[in-house]
């Protein structure tokens, strides 16, 4: 077909559309009205803009922190302990504090959350009213401000019934309460996604419910559970407010020697402290600390993603 032919056809189609008005779409194959094309382009542009805004904010944040903290990003930052002299101040106790608090938190919250999810998903009876009440409450808990959990931790864990004192594990437990709803919700989602044909196959072979869950349902749900854990850890590692309440202090010149080590600090608490100091040198330190925090977060999440992919490949 030559070009003039094609043009004539197109004009013809356009005239037909004009002639037939609204219901003539079928007449012009492959031709959309200009308004329609414009609308879809505008929609696409809007979506791109949303992505760009999100990305540029994130990029600015990281770049700004990096430029500010660049001069202090060195080994001494990682090996030195806090100090009143900005040139000597470092993050060692905060890094170890964060690792202890988050590590113990993971060990506590993942079994608890997965256990609760298994009960609700596999054992809880269909549509009983109390099950719905539990579900709604878990969803609400996920949205409670972290400072409220801090007060709870202070009243129930540091003092009150548990009376652990201001130890690192009290911080872990408080953060565990904070992210427990996230873990439960994500784990339930993951369990629900395991096809029921697997459960039936296993039960039909004479496996008990527990054996079915242990051998088939849980291994297939691990990728989803890991995703939930990534979200939870990402939230917990940056939390400051509840830890300030349950005893994370800002000037600790030794590393925690275990979960019950009294006197600990964490990265966000240390950063918070540095930001609030008047000297500019401490602000530089804070920026460098943010970079360190981001790197640790990245390493932890990479590990979880690696774990998830490993299990996905097996499935």
């Amino acid at each position: 077909m030559s070009d003039p032919d094609r043009r004539r056809l197109r004009t013809g189609a356009r005239n037909a559309i004009r002639a037939a008005g609204e219901d003539s779409e079928a007449l012009a194959l492959g031709m959309r009205s200009r308004a329609e094309v414009w609308k879809s382009t505008a929609f696409l542009a809007l979506l791109l803009l949303s992505v760009l805004v999100a990305l540029s904010l994130l990029f600015t944040l990281i770049l700004d922190a990096f430029l500010d903290g660049r001069s202090r990003l060195n080994l001494e930052l990682l090996t030195n302990f806090p100090s009143g002299v900005p040139e000597n101040a470092g993050l060692q106790s905060a890094i170890f504090g964060s690792l202890w608090v988050i590590g113990m938190m993971i060990l506590t919250v993942v079994p608890l959350g997965v256990g609760a999810a298994i009960y609700l998903e596999e054992y809880g009876e269909g549509n009983r009213w109390y099950k719905r009440v539990i579900e709604v409450n878990i969803q609400n808990l996920a949205a409670v401000p972290s400072i409220v959990f801090g007060i709870l931790g202070l009243g129930m864990i540091v003092r009150g019934p548990l009376s652990l004192g201001q130890v690192a594990y009290a911080g872990s437990l408080t953060l565990a309460l904070l992210v427990l709803p996230t873990i439960i919700l994500a784990s339930r989602e993951a369990l629900r996604a395991v096809p029921s044909s697997l459960r039936e196959a296993s039960m039909a072979l004479g496996a008990t419910k527990w054996q079915t869950i242990w051998h088939h349902v849980l291994p297939n749900a691990i990728p989803g559970i890991a995703t939930g854990a990534i979200l939870a850890v990402s939230r917990a590692i940056g939390e400051t407010a509840p830890l300030l309440l349950v005893g994370a202090t800002v000037f600790v010149t030794f590393n925690p020697d275990g979960p019950l080590s009294e006197g600990y600090t964490t990265l966000p608490v240390q950063i918070f402290n540095w930001v609030s100091r008047p000297q500019d040198e401490f602000r530089v330190l804070a920026a460098a600390g943010i970079i360190v925090l981001l790197v640790i977060l990245l390493v932890m999440n990479s590990f979880a993603i690696w774990l998830r992919n490993r299990y996905q490949r097996h499935a």
Partner: peptide
């Protein structure tokens, strides 16, 4: 024993599939 409409092997090895019943 039971065989289902849609083949539903476990996402494990052939050996483990057959051995699952006797094992549990």
């Amino acid at each position: 024993g039971m065989v289902f409409q849609k083949p539903n092997p476990f996402p494990k090895s052939i050996y483990d599939n057959v051995a699952f019943g006797p094992r549990v």
